Simulated assay, not measured.
Amino acid sequence: MKSVKWTMLNLHVCSSIVDFSLSVIVQPYYLGSTWAWLPLGIGVPLGIPYTVLISVTGTAFLITGVAVIALFENQFYLLFAENTWWRYGRILFLGVNYLVSILYIADVLMAIPDQAIARAYIFRVHPEFRLFDSPENPIQVAVAHDDSSMGTRQMLMTMMILCEGLGFPIILSFKMNNIGRTSNLTQNTVKLKKRQTFFN
């Protein structure tokens, strides 16, 4: 039970940080189909640097995805893999996921372009964005217009989290259905286990 509590607490803390940072501190207003955005949260009057806003929010967002994966992985481990090689493999699996999430944001921060050049390009292509720009709260450009690899990196990261996040529930569902057919457990016990693993 303690193991389940820690994974649920981890998910709760991560999702709370994402919620608070997106809705209160940052409040990003994304401009069209560009990588430009306008922060509208309290982070601007507080003078929090934009790189800090991006790094904290982005890292928390990705780690929340990994926390969801960890929640389902923990259910899989406790029910089906506690006495297998996965007991040790899961440490590497989760460690790599958390590390990749942090390194991805570090890569994003290093790719932030010179704002003067990037803003000049954005305003040339989208002159209507000047209406949102002000010296007190200038539009921020997260990725240079000629950095075509950022979209690819973002897609790969999203696919990794989605595949893992969907993989464990599918495996759990398959194994829970097999339990009902192959074990001596009563149907009530199987139903209870399914509820515990989020499958009614």
Rank of each mutant, 00 (worst) to 15 (best):
I171W: 13
L62K: 01
Y50D: 12
Q115P: 00
F198K: 04
K191R: 15
R195I: 15
M8F: 07
P28M: 03
Y30I: 06
P138C: 05
N178Q: 14
I122T: 06
G167N: 08
M176A: 03
I122V: 14
S134K: 02
V66D: 01
G180I: 08
Y29E: 09
F61C: 06
D107K: 04
L31P: 00
I69Q: 04
G89E: 07
A111C: 10
I91N: 15
P135H: 04
Q115A: 03
G165T: 11
I117T: 15
F61E: 04
L109H: 11
L103Q: 12
L156Q: 12
C163A: 15
P39D: 02
F199V: 11
N200K: 12
W35M: 12
E164I: 01
L162Q: 15
S23N: 13
F174P: 00
T7E: 14
S33L: 15
P28S: 04
G58V: 04
A120I: 05
A67F: 08
A106M: 11
N188H: 14
S134P: 03
F129M: 11
V100K: 03
I69C: 03
S173F: 12
S55Q: 05
S21Q: 07
A106D: 11
A81V: 02
N83Y: 15
Y30R: 07
N177K: 11
L40D: 10
I122P: 00
V26L: 10
K193T: 08
T7Q: 14
L11M: 14
R195P: 10
T59D: 03
S21T: 10
I170R: 06
V66R: 01
L79R: 13
V190G: 03
A81W: 04
G65H: 00
L78I: 09
F61G: 00
L53T: 04
I48N: 05
F20L: 11
G167A: 08
R124V: 00
L156Y: 09
T59Y: 02
V190L: 05
R153Q: 11
E82I: 02
W85V: 06
L92Y: 13
A111I: 02
K191W: 15
A142Y: 02
G43L: 05
P39H: 07
V190Y: 00
Y29G: 03
M155N: 14
R87P: 00
I122R: 07
I102K: 09
D133T: 04
T64M: 08
S15H: 05
I102G: 03
T7S: 14
L131C: 04
L40M: 15
N74W: 01
V190C: 09
H126P: 01
A116C: 01
A67E: 02
F129C: 03
T152S: 07
Q140F: 14
T182R: 15
V66I: 12
F199W: 06
R119E: 14
H12Y: 09
L92P: 06
M157F: 08
L38V: 08
L71S: 11
Y77D: 07
K2S: 13
L99D: 01
G41R: 01
L94M: 14
C14E: 12
T59F: 02
S23G: 09
M159S: 13
V4R: 14
A106F: 12
V96S: 12
M159H: 03
